[in-house]
């Protein structure tokens, strides 16, 4: 877990669904590091968090590089489309 490579963003007017249901999101950390569960040495990991609600208020994904690229492209297309609505 020691690439330490981490980006952190503020997240507003957004929600995530965790083990206890939906909750408002406050931050997200994006990092390339060893996953807890995904079957690879390194993955692109995203933690959507709400620190006010404790460590369990977390939506986590661990993506292979290919999946992360595909997600990035899908977000790009979707966000551009949304700007035309």
């Amino acid at each position: 877990m020691c690439t330490y490579s981490t980006e952190k963003i503020d997240v507003a007017a957004s929600s995530g669904k965790g083990p206890d249901g939906w909750f408002p999101l406050r931050t997200a950390t994006v990092y390339y590091d060893h996953p807890v569960h995904a079957p690879d040495a390194h993955t692109v990991n995203i933690d959507f968090l709400n620190p006010e609600r404790g460590p369990g208020a977390r939506v986590a994904v661990e993506l292979s590089l290919d999946s992360a690229r595909a997600l990035m492209a899908a977000l790009q297309v979707t966000v551009e489309r949304a700007e035309h609505h």
Partner: peptide, 14 residues
């Protein structure tokens, strides 16, 4: 008392 992965995510964010 958090799950280790949740605790690590919180620590990283901090």
């Amino acid at each position: 008392g958090a799950e280790p992965d949740d605790a690590a995510a919180t620590a990283r964010a901090n």
